[in-house]
Nucleic acid binder design. Structure first.
Lengths: 111, 111
DNA sequence: GGTTTGGTCAACCATTCGGTTGAATATGGG
DNA sequence: CCCATATTCAACCGAATGGTTGACCAAACC
């Protein structure tokens, strides 16, 4: 199943999963280390990570017996673009926004 | 219950509800008219509208025997801001973005 | 080779979700 | 007043969610 708006938004709807994403913003982490600050079983965290992976929000790579989790922030792009359609509160079109990014950063906005 | 990221994202996770939001982008609508294009009962749509209301994404106002539904796009702002925290894919800080909006539109970005 | 360590799997459980149907509650019109 | 219209309520249903526990598997260590 490739990530859809359904799966992305559903993945974001859980506070544990959002907290995990924010932790991964710092650095890649092993599953055990992700689970550490939470007061729930490792198996539960493992499930959350599976959901995040299926939503495309993270990727997991096994090196040795350690499975590393890595943020994949591009998955947020589709959701972000969808929300920008509600331009009434953010009255800017994507073209102008990308142009802004290019001016500010000197790099194309779409990778 | 005041809208949280939980309720906002959960509300957005359903395709029917996203479709409703997009319909309301056009204009305010009565509950019956919202339900019309969907192949499900009026009661089901009524439930969806309740969920959208509790998420703060729409408001409902009863005039006569008709209940009008109105988009409240500001509710997306908190979710949007949260997602912008993942600046790796959208490498711009809010201050710069607001400054951009002011330049582009000549109005303050935050209402 | 036996034992940790890291992580998933499988079964289970309570709760929530998305839908149905039928009854109930306004409000408005003739 | 009676009826149609607009909408919700209440009870029910099957499926999905978020959690648990214990067994399991694979890699690493002594």
């Amino acid at each position: 199943m490739q990530p859809s708006l359904d799966t992305v938004f559903a993945a974001l709807a859980d506070p544990t999963r959002r907290a995990i994403l924010q932790m991964l913003l710092e650095d890649d982490m092993a599953v055990t280390d992700v689970a550490d600050p939470f007061e729930m079983s490792l198996a539960a965290i493992s499930k959350h990570l599976t959901i995040l992976t299926r939503a495309g929000l993270i990727s997991q790579e096994k090196r040795g017996r350690v499975k590393w989790c890595k943020l994949e922030p591009d998955a947020l792009k589709s959701a972000s673009v969808w929300m920008q359609g509600f331009g009434q509160f953010e009255p800017v079109n994507l073209d102008a926004f990308e142009a802004f990014l290019e001016r500010e950063l000197g790099t194309p906005a779409n990778d």
